[in-house]
Nucleic acid binder design. Structure first.
Lengths: 198, 198, 198, 198
DNA sequence: TATGAATGAGGCTTCATTCAT
DNA sequence: CATGAATGAAGCCTCATTCAT
């Protein structure tokens, strides 16, 4: 137990430190020496948990995606009016994207073909879940159906992603809720449904 | 003149080949050997036109941004109803973003602080121009004013950027025009103004 | 006693597995991980029996040399006509060399000076014994004395060693007995003494 | 010309320095840093001429083998009595083996399967040439035919190889000529043919 | 101006060795 | 005694950069 526990904790520590190092740096600007030092382990230890630098990078980038997808699925299945499910969902994903925007940047930066595939699989998972919710909105007659679900999805997630960048680099202070409301205005059939001041 | 001309052409060739190499690769995965070979010049020649790898990278990423900004400013200044200026503008920027999405990814990948600044300057330029147009829309009473211009901007550009990724990695076929229309629905005060079937 | 026994067996198991690993590999291509795994012990256990990798290597290479030397001395001392002693001896050494050709290859691959010495000591032991026999042959007037014992020794052992390589890499099928007979023809004074069909 | 010349010379310099480094050391005990330093070139330069450490090692080990084989073939074809061709040949090969005994040790130390093959090809070349000469001796009725050519070959080369080791590690002073004469006594049909005091 | 052979700093990775359990 | 997780020294190799031609 202690054994398993420690092992799992060490892995998490490495992932965290990798996250901190990769967050604002290029892949090649991150030194595994630093990752190890920050995690408080020896350099060689990294290789007990990860095949190599790229593997560590990927594991880090995908860390938490599945839990996230799970939580999002739960929300989508909740017994609530669509409007509420949507805003719950939106805030959840907005927060996730803020914390793990790395993942979205990194899709473009993978060399190995096979890993590329794994990566895209995870990404598609998230896309699927989000589109599932939107599809429900359409089916329930809340969201418009003159555009595709893909269009709506793009309109929803795009701003949430871009927001992170603007807030970071442009010192803007764009709120998730504002974006969700704007999306709602564009996507919903009967505007009066809208509400949700926060 | 021929001298100037040749020089300029060679620079352009290098930038193009750099673009092709960087497009789908990590910074460190691109070898200057390959860039030079693809451009049909010797490796040393790169250093006659660019200070170093990062410089080449930046020049490439920013290549065309100023022209783009210029063109966009012109559109914004045109003597046309806001609606038309908007859609012209939107399609222009949609195309630009499609071709040069690199630039947007790369903001995060610069080591040198000073270059970071230069980069952000250019980015801000584009942001400014776009927000200028949107501000005009608000001032002219076409766009809603209950959210900030920054919010509207994020809602406009975010999907255009995300679209590129989805079309590429998810094999979606999201249209710029659809996104513009959706934006319009969310942002405009009197929906009946909207039109533009294309 | 059981204690002693077990210990000795484990040591033997390690030596055997080391032998199998080193047999066809470079020193640096052998991983102690593999040696331990093959021997069915933990990696740390190796260090209970051997000082370090090089020590294990040496012990393995020299393993059995002394017994061999002993057996050879016995043969040399037997109360038999020289001819018979020689062929017994030759076949014995031919078999030994076939099994432990490693040892002979390895002389060249030792870093530590002190270990080098130990190694050479063992080698010299074998040389001595062989030359002892040949000296007896000369003294008894069976072998020629117009060349040195060292020359004869070289003529005897060289082919036995080279044979192993040819059989292995060249797929030859050279017999120890043939080589012994050839040596005999070259080395003996009165050819009619020679016989030994097998 | 100067270009080609320089390149070829540099390669030779590297091979020589590699030879000196590998001569008395284990593969893993040789540092490419040292090879480069000894050759008076930069570390990276090694990689302009050789794929990697093992490649350098092989090229070095095989360096000169083909010339040697060529020279030996010439001797074998000379218009001389077999006896003279034999001793010429023997002395040539004795000297070669003395200088390049590395090659023979190294057969056992190659990891890559493909390189192993190349290596064995070269070795077989030498074996072939030597056996060609011995075959001629048999055909001309000078050498005995009651043993195979492979046996004779093993009897000839084995001692020449072993001699190098004994002289080096045992401080013996075994002469090539003595060994050749001994071989001759064993292999020739009419002993009176033998002569060659030197 | 253009080249590409040469360089060497620097980082990933391996694996012998240690030591807490 | 036995283990194997952890370590970090050490070296191969890459590739941006330089510079003689």
């Amino acid at each position: 137990m202690t054994r398993e526990r420690k092992k799992s904790e060490k892995r998490a520590a490495i992932l965290q430190s990798a996250f901190d190092e990769f967050k604002n740096r290029r892949f090649d600007a991150v030194k595994l020496d630093d990752v190890a030092a920050r995690a408080g382990v020896g350099k060689g230890t990294l290789y007990l948990y990860f095949k190599n630098k790229e593997d560590l990078f990927i594991q880090m980038a995908l860390d938490g995606v599945e839990q996230m997808a799970g939580r999002m699925k739960e929300i989508a299945r909740m017994d609530l009016p669509f409007c509420e499910r949507f805003f719950l969902f939106g805030r959840e994903i907005g927060a996730f994207v803020e914390k793990r925007s790395v993942m979205f940047r990194l899709m473009h930066q993978i060399s190995s073909e096979s890993i590329q595939q794994e990566f895209m699989g995870q990404h598609r998972l998230l896309v699927e879940v989000a589109r599932g919710l939107l599809k429900a909105g359409v089916d329930e007659g809340v969201l418009r159906s003159d555009v595709t679900v893909a269009d709506l999805h793009c309109l929803l997630i795009g701003p949430l992603l871009f927001r992170v960048r603007l807030n970071k680099f442009n010192n803007d202070q764009i709120e998730v809720n504002t974006l969700l409301n704007l999306f709602w205005d564009a996507a919903v059939l009967k505007p009066e449904t809208r509400k949700l001041e926060l």
